[in-house]
């Protein structure tokens, strides 16, 4: 299965969350905060903290630690608050 992350293709095993894909690829952050522009990645890892948000196929505020991608998904970094589309 193949997805793109910020335009880069990634081959991912079935069942792996977006967060696991990104950490395995050596990334520790993929979001910036709304006020301070601070980098964030996984914190709680179980869907509680909403720190690991990414944009999936144009829809922001997707928890990377919870979302198991589908083939062809386009994932990208989320910058602060974003509108869908």
């Amino acid at each position: 299965m193949r997805i793109t992350v910020d335009g880069e293709p990634h081959d991912v095993p079935e069942g792996r969350t977006i967060a696991a894909v990104l950490i395995a690829a050596g990334r520790s952050s993929w979001r910036t905060t709304r006020n301070g522009g601070r980098p964030r990645g996984v914190f709680c890892g179980i869907g509680v903290c909403f720190d690991c948000l990414v944009v999936v196929n144009g829809v922001p505020d997707v928890r990377a630690c919870q979302r198991v991608p589908s083939d062809g998904d386009a994932v990208r970094t989320q910058h602060g608050a974003e509108l869908p589309g």
Binding site: R40, F43, G45, I46, C65
Partner: peptide, 22 residues
Amino acid sequence: DLPGVYTAGAAQALAKEHGVAV
């Protein structure tokens, strides 16, 4: 709040489910 600080549960979930070390 720095990336690289995880809850214990996050590190465990990544290790147990995905074999990924933080």
